[in-house]
């Protein structure tokens, strides 16, 4: 599932056999419905580069908040679908601790230039945490700088 900001459908189609792949052209900040059984939901939607997300700050906030909310709703509807979200080292903001371990809470400026991304991702993580209230199975992968071909 992806929205008009990217054209990943062509990339996916080129690398995955057609019968094993179904692409949904949809924006996760809108209500999400996927028919049939789902085992896993992986939420990676969001621009990650400061160059990109500062061009679309509102959309960046929305995909981290509304997008997460909608996908958690989908996970709840699908009962046993396990939900994984992509967190980021950016949730530490301008860290006062080096290196940052998983126990560190960060040092984010909510009105700083990167706030739209950092706070959206923090909301994302918090939503994931409270989802246990609904008995959802959730996972958080906190990714640092990454490069290279897939």
């Amino acid at each position: 599932m992806d929205n008009p900001h990217h054209r990943f459908d062509a990339i996916y189609r080129a690398s995955v056999p057609a019968k094993e792949f179904e692409f949904y052209f949809h924006d996760v900040t809108k209500f999400v419905h996927v028919p049939g059984k789902l085992d896993y939901i992986l939420h990676f939607a969001s621009p990650a580069s400061p160059i990109d997300y500062l061009k679309i700050p509102i959309q960046t906030l929305k995909v981290g908040s509304l997008g997460t909310h909608n996908l958690l709703g989908l996970a709840k509807e699908k009962k046993k679908a396990r939900f994984l979200i992509a967190s980021t080292s950016e949730i530490y903001g301008d860290p006062s601790v080096h290196p940052q371990n998983e126990e560190y809470w960060g040092n984010v400026n909510p009105i700083g230039p990167r706030g739209v991304y950092d706070e959206a991702k923090r909301f994302w993580s918090t939503s994931n945490g409270v989802s246990t209230y609904h008995g959802l199975e959730t996972r958080i992968v906190r990714i640092f700088n990454t490069y290279g071909r897939a």
Partner: peptide
Amino acid sequence: LLSDYYDASQHR
């Protein structure tokens, strides 16, 4: 994804 671990996990 396949593990039973539900807290945040850094990968780096």
